[in-house]
Amino acid sequence: MTGFTLDLDDSQFEQVKSQLVAKYGAGKLDDGMKDEQCLYRNGANFKVTSGTKTTQWRQHVSPTEEGIDLAD
């Protein structure tokens, strides 16, 4: 496998991440989440969180392992 992408809510993300961390280690986290205050003209405000979190795991393989077909 070269990679995959999942679109998860926060609780699903944490569950999948904990399973991957248990098997492959911590990985490299890139947390691009940002909080922004939105203000109404009457002075009321609220916070909006947006962005993405990604975690990347890499495993280097030898040139001979690159050609192995795991489907067999």
Rank of each mutant, 00 (worst) to 15 (best):
Y40W: 11
A71E: 15
S50K: 06
E36H: 05
G25H: 02
R58Y: 04
A26E: 01
G43I: 02
T52H: 12
L6N: 00
Q37T: 14
Q37R: 11
A44E: 15
R41H: 10
L20K: 02
T54A: 07
T64H: 05
D72I: 13
T2N: 09
S18E: 09
D69C: 06
T2I: 12
A26N: 00
T49F: 09
G51Y: 08
D31M: 05
S18Y: 01
L20C: 11
F4M: 04
Q37C: 05
F46S: 13
E14P: 03
E65I: 09
P63M: 11
F46G: 13
T5Q: 09
T55L: 03
G51K: 07
N42M: 03
Q12A: 12
G51P: 08
T49D: 05
D31T: 05
H60W: 08
T5L: 09
A22G: 14
G51I: 11
Y24F: 11
L6D: 00
G27F: 00
D30Y: 03
G25M: 03
I68D: 08
V61Q: 04
E66A: 12
G43Y: 00
K28T: 15
S50Q: 11
G67M: 12
K28N: 12
D72M: 06
P63G: 08
D10C: 09
T55A: 08
L29R: 14
K53C: 09
M33W: 06
K23P: 04
P63A: 13
L70H: 05
H60P: 05
S18Q: 10
R41C: 07
Q15I: 07
T64W: 08
V16Q: 01
N42R: 01
A22N: 14
G32S: 05
L29M: 14
T54H: 00
N42I: 00
Y24V: 03
G51Q: 10
L70K: 04
Q19P: 00
V21I: 15
F13C: 04
K28H: 12
D7V: 14
L39M: 15
W57Y: 00
V48I: 10
K17W: 10
K34T: 09
L39S: 15
S62R: 13
K47P: 01
T54Y: 02
S18K: 02
